[in-house]
């Protein structure tokens, strides 16, 4: 564990009776209570439109709940200042369903972005970013803009960007949605690798085959606005 001098223990994320309603309609999520423990590996599943992405957005503070409390890394997020929010986000890595790579940067620059915005000097991270890019099979496409990458390549770039800071918590929204089964297995191995080195992994997916490949992973199921622990 010497690569990771500090690793959290206990709950990284805790939802207590969280409800969310968009506008004036019925609640999208009702009474959601769960937690993500340090070093854990969890899948969030459910049919399309049940609110998987919404739940992830609540965790990453892209949305505020209409009721209930969300605790992140031990901090109540109800009245979180901007500086604290940034500090908490820096402990997460996020893989968006639509990747959200920046089109005007190269693949390398996209993956290095989380390090760059932390004010780190490029010389201090270039080698490890290149290494990571090779690992996800994008070594030859480092200088290419995301626009010319295939869907699977963009997905890998966005996963690399989420992992590059070795976050305490990795949130991934359908991270294998655009790749063939063999590549999906490789990417999953990457997540398992990260999990072994201390990162808590939380993956939203409806790919049942994927979930069966991780032994000991907890399964959370979203159905009918409620969250339950799966079999």
């Amino acid at each position: 564990m010497q690569d990771f001098p500090y690793r959290p223990v206990g709950e990284l994320v805790r939802f207590d009776n969280v409800g969310l309603r968009y506008g004036v309609g019925a609640e999208t999520l009702t009474d959601v209570s769960f937690s993500i423990e340090a070093h854990s590996f969890q899948f969030l599943t459910g049919a399309s439109g049940t609110g998987k992405t919404t739940l992830l957005r609540l965790i990453m503070q892209g949305l505020k709940p209409t009721r209930g409390t969300i605790t992140l890394f031990g901090e109540d997020t109800t009245d979180l200042g901007k500086d604290r929010l940034t500090a908490l986000r820096r402990r997460m890595g996020i893989v968006f369903q639509d990747f959200r790579l920046l089109d005007h940067l190269t693949t390398y620059e996209n993956v290095a972005l989380p390090l760059k915005v932390r004010g780190r000097d490029e010389a201090s991270y270039r080698a490890e970013v290149v290494e990571l890019l090779r690992w996800v099979g994008l070594g030859d496409l480092m200088d290419a803009p995301p626009a010319i990458l295939s869907g699977g390549e963009q997905q890998r770039a966005s996963i690399a960007r989420a992992l590059v800071t070795q976050p305490d918590l990795l949130l991934a929204d359908e991270p294998t949605g655009n790749v063939d089964p063999s590549l999906a297995r490789r990417l999953l191995r990457l997540f398992i690798e990260m999990n072994r080195s201390g990162t808590a992994v939380f993956i939203a997916t409806h790919d049942i085959g994927l979930m069966d490949q991780v032994r000991g992973a907890r399964k959370l199921v979203l159905a009918d606005r409620h969250l339950s622990v799966g079999a």
Partner: peptide
């Protein structure tokens, strides 16, 4: 707007 949102999510603060 989208780029700013991404920068926020990858850990950029407002000053940056």
């Amino acid at each position: 707007r989208d780029i700013i949102a991404v920068l926020h999510f990858v850990g950029a603060d407002d000053g940056y």
